[in-house]
Simulated assay, not measured.
Amino acid sequence: MPIALGGVFVFLLVSANPLLEKWVSLLNPGNTASHISLGRVLLWAAALSVVWPFIHVRWSGRREMPAYIVTAAALMQTMPSGQSNFFGAATILRLLILFNLLFAVQTILDAVYLWGNAALPTDISYASYAHRGAYPLIVTALLAAGFVLAAMRPGGPADQSPVIRSLVYLWVAQNVLLVISSILLLDLYVQIYLLTWWRVAAFIWMILVALGLVLIVGRIALNRSNAWLIRANLITLTATLYACSLVNFAAVIADYNVSHSREATGKGVAIDMDYLFSLGPQALPAIDRAIAFRGLDPALVSRRGCLVEQQVKDTAFWRSWGFRSWRLRRAMGAQSKSSTAG
Rank of each mutant, 00 (worst) to 15 (best):
F86C: 04
R289Y: 02
L5K: 03
S25C: 01
I183N: 05
R132F: 09
G88H: 03
Q174A: 06
V8L: 10
L42P: 00
Y126G: 13
R231M: 07
I207D: 06
A283I: 04
W197F: 10
S37Q: 05
L215C: 01
T140P: 03
F293N: 05
I216A: 01
N31K: 11
A210D: 07
S225Y: 09
L186R: 13
V10H: 09
M152A: 06
K313Q: 14
A201G: 12
M76F: 02
A173T: 08
A290W: 07
A341G: 06
I108C: 03
R94L: 09
D255S: 12
V163K: 14
V308F: 09
G88S: 03
N28Q: 11
S161A: 04
T265F: 04
I180R: 14
F317E: 13
V112G: 01
L102T: 04
M152N: 07
W326D: 13
Q106S: 12
P154I: 01
A251F: 06
L234Q: 15
L229S: 06
S49I: 06
L222E: 13
N31P: 04
D274N: 13
L296K: 15
L5P: 01
V209P: 09
G156W: 07
W205R: 02
V51Y: 11
S25F: 04
L178S: 11
E263C: 02
F277V: 11
G212L: 00
W171S: 08
Q174K: 11
P157C: 00
F317Q: 12
D297M: 03
R262G: 01
R199M: 03
L75V: 04
A150L: 04
A46C: 06
R329W: 10
A292E: 15
V301N: 11
M152Q: 09
A16S: 15
R219Y: 05
T71R: 14
Y242R: 04
V172P: 04
A67T: 10
F11I: 00
W44P: 01
L143H: 10
A74I: 01
A111D: 15
I3G: 04
T122D: 14
A232Q: 13
C244D: 12
M332L: 15
I92T: 08
E21T: 00
G146N: 07
H56W: 13
R153S: 05
Y113L: 03
L307K: 09
I192H: 13
S49F: 08
L137V: 07
I180C: 06
W326Y: 15
Q77A: 06
T91S: 10
R294E: 10
R294S: 10
V70H: 07
R58Q: 10
A4K: 12
Y135W: 08
V148I: 11
L208T: 02
Q160C: 02
A46K: 15
L19M: 11
L26Y: 10
I164H: 03
L195R: 15
